[in-house]
Computed example of a mutant assay.
Amino acid sequence: MTPRSKEELDALAIIDPEVDAKPSSRIPPAVPEVTESTQKYKTRDGAELNLITFQATEPAPGSQPLIIFFHGGGGVVGSASSVAPLARELVKDQGSVVISPQYRLAPEHPFPTGPDDGWDAFEYIVTHISSLGAQIDPSLGLVVGGSSQGAVLASLIALHAKEKTPPLPKITGLYFAAGGFIASPDTIPEKYKHQYLSRTDERCVNAPVLDKETKAMFDMAYNPDMSSPLYRAFNVQPLSRHADVAAKAYFQVCGLDILRDDTLIYASVLQDLGVDVKFDVYEGAPHVFWSVFIWTKLAGRWKDETKRGVKWLLGREDSRL
């Protein structure tokens, strides 16, 4: 992927007029076509946490692919149930099973508890497929993803999973929605360093949803070791180790987001390493706008493109995508 110019990146940060005018917090209700159930998994320190499973109430014959999706919230807020609207859509649209794991949050549970829980949830799920109460076949598709902090966890899980011995079921696709992957500019390949602008662009750092003060507050509560490989994917060096994290990766990029260029650069790096990459860019949109500005046209576009992106990850794409 060709590096983007400063002018192209500047254009992405012009706020969408509809987003500027219409915040919302309404969450759609449950739907009869999707059954939701909760079971427990045990972490390495003995805590019992929730796994919420979303599956078709009347599934088609045969087995279904699996999507493991982690919620966002900076490692400080959020819940496994918050992904329900998207999970329901993916179950209905793809005939897949979606599992949303709970992970513990800072400051009550300091770093690296969250990433450790994320890995423990993933390992439990893929080694207990037969006991999850659904007809799952990971060979039909095993997608791991998340939004914001959930994308961070998914990226770290993928890196660990590829090096795990004995090997676990292969992650076939990664879905990264507005994630943060870079802790230090020093970890960015030279040819992309000029593209790392959103962390200092005044429009991005003062944007709705996640401005610099909010991010600083989250970072203070999360209190990570910022050099740890459990903090950001780019701390896993050399970046050649990121090859083959999955065959495909789908990125969603918010143009008016302090994390925008983390996403664009990681997409480029994975593509350079041979991962098949697709991404959708939402010009003028703040961080995870789809969860706040739910009824905007832009959020409707996000929903449609998410379905197409996950369909592509599962190898069911329309040739016109």
Score class of each variant (00 low, 15 high):
G300N: 14
L313P: 09
M1A: 15
G309Q: 10
L264Y: 14
T2R: 15
Y175G: 10
T187N: 13
A183K: 01
S63Y: 08
A11I: 00
G315P: 14
A106E: 08
Y250C: 14
R88S: 13
D116Q: 10
K40S: 11
T296F: 04
F234C: 05
A106Q: 13
N206S: 15
T35Q: 14
T187E: 09
D262C: 11
E33K: 08
D201Y: 00
T187Y: 05
I52C: 00
L12P: 00
I258E: 00
F251G: 08
F69N: 15
T187D: 05
A247G: 15
M1E: 11
D272C: 08
L159W: 03
P101L: 12
V83D: 07
A56R: 11
S148Q: 02
L132K: 09
I265S: 11
G150R: 12
H109G: 05
H128E: 04
V205P: 03
D225R: 02
F279K: 12
G179H: 05
P229W: 12
S155H: 10
R308F: 03
A121I: 07
V97W: 09
D280Y: 04
K92T: 14
T43S: 08
V310F: 09
A151L: 04
R308Q: 11
A233Q: 11
F279S: 13
R44S: 03
R316W: 02
F176N: 00
D120N: 15
D186T: 03
A267G: 13
G114Q: 13
G180I: 01
D10Y: 02
A183I: 02
P208D: 09
L298P: 02
K6S: 15
I68F: 04
Q195Y: 05
P286Q: 02
L140T: 04
P23I: 00
A233N: 11
I265Y: 03
A161E: 15
D45A: 10
K193I: 04
L105P: 13
T187W: 01
F289I: 02
E8H: 15
D257I: 01
R316F: 02
T200Y: 13
T165E: 13
K311Y: 03
I294A: 14
H194F: 00
D257Q: 06
P23H: 12
H128F: 03
N206Q: 12
V76L: 06
A249Q: 01
T214P: 09
D201M: 03
P224R: 05
I99L: 07
M220V: 06
V209D: 00
K92A: 10
A243S: 14
A299W: 02
L270M: 07
T113C: 12
V83S: 11
E7L: 13
P185H: 07
F279V: 04
A80M: 09
S268L: 03
L132I: 02
G145S: 07
T43D: 00
G75A: 05
P189A: 04
E36C: 07
Q39A: 05
